[in-house]
Design a protein around this nucleic acid. Structure first.
Lengths: 107, 107
DNA sequence: ATTTATTATCGTAATATTGCAATATATAAA
DNA sequence: TTTATATATTGCAATATTACGATAATAAAT
């Protein structure tokens, strides 16, 4: 169907899945790494760096924004995209809580 | 297109995206939590717990297996699915390395 | 005001994912 | 051997995602 039955899962499970889904594309991983490591954030530079068309990058940025992982500051006709560090830490914490709580076995 | 241009990204980026993709569904989150927290692992029990049809659960288990996140031990006509703790820790480490290396900003 | 540069949105084609019924496979029990 | 039980596979319908060309929107520069 392509549609996920979110109703049968709890909020935390859906939220965690959503976070992982946003991170589940190499272009979005690459964008985050580029923003962070090159300390650059101009949208146009990201397009040049990644190698995908501008509308495609714009779409990926939109998904990163959808969970507040990045924020865009307008500076003239350019937009500087930065990582939302508060949210970033929050997500890392949630992710680790999941990993730590889910490492026991019966066999 | 639905198809991802993996060629333009490096191995680490693609691998990380694949890991996140496997975790990017609430059913798979729920399966992992159930296996770990209830210390139960029989496939049929998972079907009863989660509330999705048996073929759907089987498919999700297959995806979890695709990156070695779980392993299935046959015990009679049943199969006991367990978390692969070695791989689990590996993934947590990789995930944290990404979070730690990607938290710097220019603005 | 017009032009130029930057980013967002729309529309669309191609592929991927989700979910399930039907069915196949495998093993234990009778 | 037949039957019952547990899991996997197949095939398919519906929806989601990815990617991009065309175009709109916005703001600086001329």
């Amino acid at each position: 169907m392509g549609i996920t039955k979110t109703q049968i899962f709890n909020k935390k499970q859906n939220k965690l899945a959503t976070i992982f889904k946003v991170l589940a594309h190499p272009a979005r991983i690459a964008i985050l790494q580029y923003i962070s490591n090159q300390k650059a954030c101009i949208c146009n530079d990201i397009v040049a760096e990644i190698g995908l068309a501008q509308p495609t990058i714009s779409q990926h940025l939109k998904e990163l924004k959808s969970i507040d992982l990045i924020k865009g500051d307008i500076s003239g006709k350019r937009i500087c995209y930065c990582i939302n560090l508060k949210k970033w830490k929050e997500i890392q914490t949630e992710s680790n809580a999941f990993f730590d709580k889910t490492k026991f076995n019966c066999c």
